[in-house]
Simulated scan of single mutants.
Amino acid sequence: MIFIIYFVLAVLVVLCSVKCADYVDLLDKKTNISGAFIGGIILAAVTSLPELFTSISSLYVVDNPELIIGNVLGSNVFNLAVLGALVAFTARNFIKSKVAPSHMATLVCSLIAYLGCAFATLTGWGTIPVININIVSLLIIVVYVISFRFLSSDDTANDEEADSPLTVRQIVVRFILMALGLVAASICITWATDQIASKLNLNASLAGALFLGVATSLPELTSSVALVRKRNYNAMFGNIIGSNMFNFTILSIADILCWKQSIYIPSYQTTLMLIFGVLSSVIAGAILLKRRAKKEEGNAAKIFHIICSLGIVLSYLLFLVLSA
């Protein structure tokens, strides 16, 4: 029965994520708000809520702060692999689409966050006395605010017209309801995972990797696929890169809440996630830089994007192999 409940909850997460993506696409077409901002801030925050709740659960439910950095960095590497796969398989449509230049600023901010995490994790330095918060956590908040400002100032407009009879207000209300459904399903999945771990006598971290990790990655995956099907690559890029940046702020929140020990705990897997996260981000940056250059829609541009995108996917697969 608990497996049936888990499956039903996972289906609810997928459905809510797809509907959120649909409403984001409508908002992009019906308002003057940039798709980069809608995808990179609004949708990204919503689809990253499962990581937030599971990270808080790691502190107060299973009392294992080490799960937090693995949850965040692991989700980020997976998200970039999703981006790579979607661009690789739809390269012809991607090179004809509009992608805002502000995504590059967000990607640079995420690379700064990666370097900060690497410093705190590998050196063990940076903890501020008395308040027991790592300075890297404060740096992450600063760069997130900077990325927020870049996205909010972006004026890339979507020239397509929406054929939906819904008003902007109705779209916003329905988006909020779907977001609340996504949050509720995520909380229930945390409970279901704990029950599965208990019944199968699994280690909490193993259960998290097998069941919780998959579930928390579904929102980014399904919403991004839905946006690509609508050829809204601007919002898709914003969703993936914005989710990664939001995930880093989860580390800051967890660091503030965790008084017992640092959440920047070194391990072999953490080092791998940092290396491949940076590598995948750099490749994604190359894709964005190519988009900012003189627009090309020939086979050369298509091959370039396919090679770079597959490089991101291969880096994720290499991470899995080396982590085994």
Rank of each mutant, 00 (worst) to 15 (best):
Ile146Leu: 07
Thr193Leu: 00
Gly74Lys: 03
Ile112Cys: 14
Val8Leu: 15
Ser102Asp: 08
Ala204Asp: 12
Gly298Lys: 14
Ser315Gln: 04
Thr249Val: 15
Ile140Gly: 04
Trp191Ser: 04
Phe78Leu: 11
Leu27Tyr: 10
Ser58Thr: 04
Ile306Met: 10
Ser137Ala: 13
Ala209Trp: 03
Ser186Glu: 11
Glu220Gln: 12
Val173Glu: 07
Pro50Ala: 02
Ile33Asn: 12
Leu111Met: 15
Asn158Gly: 02
Ser153Gln: 14
Ile95Phe: 11
Ile112Trp: 02
Ala204Cys: 00
Asp28Cys: 00
Ser17Ala: 08
Leu139Thr: 13
Ile135His: 11
Tyr6Ala: 10
Arg174Gln: 03
Leu202Ala: 08
Arg92Asp: 13
Lys302Ala: 00
Ser323Met: 05
Leu49Phe: 15
Ser34Gly: 12
Gly208Ala: 02
Ala324Met: 09
Leu59Arg: 06
Ser48Asn: 01
Ile283Asp: 11
Leu177Val: 08
Tyr6Thr: 05
Lys98Thr: 13
Leu257Ala: 12
Leu318Pro: 04
Ser137Met: 03
Leu27Thr: 08
Trp191Glu: 05
Val142Lys: 08
Val82Tyr: 01
Phe94Cys: 02
Lys302Arg: 07
Asp159Ala: 14
Phe37Ser: 01
Glu220Asp: 08
Tyr268Cys: 09
Leu122Phe: 09
Val143Ile: 14
Ile128Thr: 07
Asp163Gln: 09
Glu66Val: 12
Val82Ser: 02
Leu272Gln: 10
Ile265Gly: 06
Val24Arg: 13
Ala105Arg: 11
Gly181Ile: 04
Leu49Tyr: 05
Val24His: 07
Ile140Tyr: 12
Ile303Cys: 01
Leu26Met: 14
Asp163Val: 11
Tyr233Ala: 05
Ala100Leu: 00
Leu73Gln: 11
Leu288Lys: 02
Ser315Lys: 12
Leu274Arg: 06
Ala185His: 04
